[in-house]
Write a protein that binds this DNA or RNA. Structure first.
Lengths: 232, 232
DNA sequence: AAGTGTGAATTGATTCACAGCC
DNA sequence: GGCTGTGAATCAATTCACACTT
């Protein structure tokens, strides 16, 4: 592929890029991961069918999703693996390094601080913060835990714009407010409460107990049905 | 409210219950949690507006969601808090105790085993399992870690039907297959790979790195826009 | 007067199916 | 001949707006 071809394609992608549907965005990380795995296994091209299978979606959805980014495939052939990895990474902002602060170094915060999966995807745990004095100065995952009083200074100095709230429910809103006031505009919330934030701030929630409850709901349905069969 | 009223309402709910939309089911845990908090604060009734605010959704959505469960409110008044807690809990299967097995006791498995939020919502960590011999016999969150070889026996003896996969990506599919073969039909997957399961098995995925990537995508957009403003 | 419950309208996501290109 | 890209069709979720009940 020539530089001219690549450049014109990217220009088109930039135009379309405005309107990528939310559901598509949420699947881009899946595609990216599947493509990286394929790349490591030495694949050079992949069909929508294959990639869809690797990512756990159907091929129509995959093609439609990719078409929002641009025309990156070749009819009759498929997609160039390394080129598509590059395009999705660019779209996701994976080329840059995102410093992240984790607030709350309890069980979950600990696990997140030690989790290796972030670094490889462009995220760097830049700081750990906790309200409990006994946790301060502790070293977790190679980082010293700072007292919450230093939150504003740390965010400002490090240029952090993504914060992770891993505090108990009761502290989450206040922590979030301070993060936002300090300049954070993307929040990943593990506390089981909805966070109120200004317009320009994005929040995503990960709610472990809810996930289990949703499974339990379906499980209960299955069990009800099978007991009904046994009777009827 | 009389017993007769309650019984007829429940009968109706059972009829409607078949078709509760997936998006609604995913919000029931939110409503339940908000209601429990209101109950603890001594509220006896709540309007859709108030409850919606507490759960972080809009009131039209809340009313529509609740209407799928039945007609549990009173026009001009609102919803009876404790009655609605009871109904949602019943719908979610929260009245029964769900034993859960966690496979993989690394950082995340550790955190999950120690996480207090499960027990209070009807889930009981019944067993911990890990493949690494050096982790076996360790005690985490009051439970001994069992070798993976005992997985099938444990699931059968404890009547576990919900499994949590907290292993590295490479082990996840095999662990999942063994869980399913042993009789588990609901899986919560923390490994960053799609799990292939038979028709009757439900899988939910929690993908921490993806969540951050989705935030990064939007963050990048925000920064692009503000830099464009600065120029234009 | 207050506030639920719900048809109708709208918006968004998925799937179909095939024209167009390699 | 094989496979992408995409309009059109379908399905699902959200929002509107108001009739109806207390």
């Amino acid at each position: 592929m020539t530089r001219a071809e690549r450049t014109s394609r990217e220009a088109r992608a930039d135009v379309r890029g405005r309107g990528v549907p939310e559901a598509t965005i949420a699947r881009l990380p899946l595609y990216h991961r599947a493509l990286v795995a394929l790349d490591e296994r030495g694949a050079t091209t992949v069909s929508s069918e294959e990639l869809a299978a690797a990512a756990g979606v159907n091929s129509a959805k995959l093609r439609k999703d990719l078409s929002y980014l641009g025309s990156y495939g070749t009819r009759g052939v498929g997609y160039d693996v390394s080129y598509l990895v590059y395009q999705i990474a660019r779209e996701l902002g994976l080329s840059q390094d995102w410093p992240v602060v984790i607030v709350g170094v309890g069980n979950l915060g600990h696990a997140l601080a030690n989790y290796g999966g972030f670094a490889s995807r462009g995220f760097r745990i830049a700081a750990l913060v906790d309200a409990a004095p006994e946790r301060t100065r502790e070293v977790v995952g190679g980082l010293t835990v700072h007292p919450i009083a230093e939150l504003e200074r740390i965010v400002a100095e490090t240029g952090i714009c993504i914060g992770v709230v891993a505090t108990p429910a009761g502290a989450a809103q206040e922590v979030c407010d301070r993060l936002v006031a300090a300049g954070v505009s993307s929040v990943l919330n593990f506390a089981p409460v909805p966070l109120r934030v200004p317009e320009h701030v994005d929040v995503r929630r990960v709610d472990l107990a809810s996930e289990l409850q949703i499974l339990a709901f379906h499980q209960q349905r299955k069990q009800l049905e099978s007991s009904r069969e046994a009777v009827g």
